[in-house]
Every structure is written in C-alpha cells, then in structure tokens.
Write a protein that binds this DNA or RNA. Structure first.
Lengths: 195, 195
DNA sequence: AGGCGAAAGCGAGGGGCCCTCGGGTTTGTC
DNA sequence: GACAAACCCGAGGGCCCCTCGCTTTCGCCT
C-alpha cells in the first residue's frame, strides 16, 4: 500500500525515511491541533530540522495535500459506488456527508481548501477539482431523477460541503451534521416536510 | 452620536483620544486585511504604543467587540421592524441576510464569533447571545405562520448564518448570497420549487 | 499658579512562528 | 575507497503576540 512506487523518482534512503516520519508526525499534530499547527513542532517531533521539512514540503498546503491524498482514494471509491445507487437523491446526500467528513479531519482544513482554489498550482487545488468533478456526476443523476432542484450547480454543492466542514470544527459534530442535513434539504426538489 | 456617555466612567482626555484613534484605525485595518490583521500595525497607524492598545483592549476580541457594538444597533433595530412584518417567513429570511452581512464586515470575523461562544466572558459572547435572542423571536413567528419547519431551532438559524458569513469571505459575495438562499430554503416548510 | 498623586502611555524584551540559505553530511555508485 | 550529487542542518532575519517596570501627562485642589 505504501510501496515506494507513488512517485517514479527514487529517493535516497534517508530522504524517504524523513519524508515518511514527517508525514506521520504531521498527521498526529494536525489531528491534535488543527491544520494551522506549528510546522516547527512537526519537524521537532519528527526529529528533523526545520529546513528538511521545507525541503520536502515547500508549503503547508503541500504537506496537507500529501496527507489528504491517501484518504481521498476512499472518497472517490465511495463516489463510484454511489453512482450506481438506486436512489440518486440519497446517493448525493451520502456523498455530501462523506466529503464533509473528509474535509474536516483536521480543524481549520476547510479554510485551507477554499484558500487553495485560486492557487491553481497548489497541491490541494487538483484534489478539490477532482472532488468537484465526482460530485458533478452524482448531482447530474440526482437532478435527472427529480430529487434535486434543477437550478442547483456543482459549485453550490461544493460550497455547501465546505461550509458544513467549517461548521464541523466550530460546533459539536452532531450539531454540524444537523446543519448539513438542513442544507441538503435546501437543494432538494421537495421539502421533506418532517415538521 | 459618539458622546462620552457610553461608559459612566470618565476617561482622561488623552485616554479617550487614543481610544478613539485606535478604534478608527482598527476599523480600517480590519477592513483592509481581515480580522486577524496585526495589532501592532493598528497601534502603529494610530500613532500609539503597542502597550497602550493592550491597555485599552486586552484582547483582539475586545477590540472587535467594541467595533461591532455600534453596527449592532442597526441590526437590532431591523430585527424589531421585521417583527411586525406581514410575512413572517420573509422577515426571518431578511433578518438572516442582514445578520450574515453584519457578521462578514471583516473577513475572518465568523471564526472569531464562533470561537467566542464558549468564552462566556468575552465581549463578543454577549453580542452573539443577543443576536440569538432576536432571531428566536423571528423564528417563532415564522414557525407559527407555517413558513418554517417546526423542527428548526434558533441554534440552527444561528449556525446557518455563521456558515454563510464564513462562505462570504471565501467566495465572491454573490455566490455566497446564493448559498445562504439555499440554506434558507432548507429550513422552509415547503420547497419553493423554483426549478 | 503650582504641586501632586493617580491615570495613562511607552517600548524594550522574552517567546513563537515562518521561511531561506550557505555550508556540512550521507548515500550510492564506479 | 573516493567523488559527486542529494540531502540535512540550524542560525538568522522578519514579523507578531503580550507583559511589565518606568516615565510622562492630566486634572484636581490648594
């Protein structure tokens, strides 16, 4: 799974070791303190000089991007599965919930994601675009099935997901889920009238 | 309008002068750079030492709170007006739009607002609570009129407003407004079926 | 007018964090 | 082994937060 094959480029042994340590420590530090945690702390914990961290990941976003890449595969897999779901409306809703959860692994991540949208070269940019594309397919199906309003765009879905992810690290998680539910109802063709 | 009467405590002339200068510069700096702008810059622009800034406003939130207090009056006034509006559903929607705009004057403000919720002593906390109370009344009317789902709470409204405010400084403003519209539709008793 | 105590202002300084860069090490290869 | 390339190191410049002891200014009172 984590075989050296991801990049064709072969790294020197020490480089690869530091690279992996950095990723591992970054993951735990970001989990503990959120996506704006001190990079110097990450380097320290990884037993590596700060310059080495920057040599491997020139920017915080690059580091986050590397961290997210693995998890993303799961989300895309789910997306494919959902594309064949019998209920296109429910499928889109599930997708939105999954992506929201994914975009909220580290608190403060949503800001970084949205912030990377105008930075086309950013590591995170590509990820966001792919997400958008996957979501678009699900949205199309949901609209065709009449489950979702015709005037809703993929950008809307993306924005709502981001907002929900942001809420998730401001509020207790159950409340945040509830808000996402309300947003999902907002794009539905018919209100679920659950009052 | 800015007569000295706000606090019963009389300030020394130089104190009041610096206080006002700080507020004025803070306003423009936050407008230019967002709510996380450097406080040292604010002090510098106000022609005041950094210690003086902290003497007046012990925390960034205190400064933001002071800045927002004036604007808040407008929002509360609007709230009162809307309470007598003939269409309770539309009134709630207008109020949500107004509060969202208010909570997005400075980019990054939404984070500060939500962050101050557990800090009961914070300057911003009181403001948020008052907002919540005002919103609750409008929500009650909207529910009674059958314009809004019965299961929606004031906390929901508050959360959606916050999320919309956050979106507002991540996205072009018109897009953010659109998202808020979707959220508003989400809490409506019946989907507006505008597809 | 002048003096005095309290209120207010000042800004150096300790602590952090970000990021760069020149010089010292390690690795892998021949 | 030895050499060049790849890699690592960490001091240092820049910016920021916030505190605290010392100095200045204000405003009242004689």
């Amino acid at each position: 799974m984590s075989s050296p094959g991801s990049t064709p480029r072969r790294m020197r042994a020490d480089a690869r070791r530091n690279h992996d340590r950095l990723l591992a420590e970054a993951r735990t530090v970001f989990e503990e303190q959120g996506a704006q945690a001190s990079l110097e702390l990450v380097a320290r914990r990884a037993g590596v000089a700060i310059g080495t961290l920057y040599a491997h990941f020139p920017t915080r976003r690059a580091l986050l991007g590397a961290l997210l890449r693995e998890r993303q595969d799961d989300v895309f897999a789910l997306g494919d599965t959902l594309l064949t779901d019998q209920d296109p409306g429910a499928a889109l809703a599930s997708w939105m919930r999954a992506v929201t959860a994914h975009a909220a692994v580290y608190s403060g991540l949503a800001d970084q994601l949205l912030g990377s949208l105008d930075d086309t070269s950013s590591e995170l940019y590509g990820a966001c675009k792919r997400m958008g594309a996957a979501g678009e397919a699900l949205l199309g199906r949901a609209k065709a099935a009449g489950a979702v309003r015709q005037d809703v765009t993929a950008d809307d879905v993306f924005a709502l997901i981001s907002a929900a992810a942001w809420l998730r690290d401001q509020l207790p998680p159950d409340r945040a889920d509830r808000q996402l539910g309300l947003m999902i109802d907002g794009i539905a063709a018919t209100a679920p009238a659950r009052d």
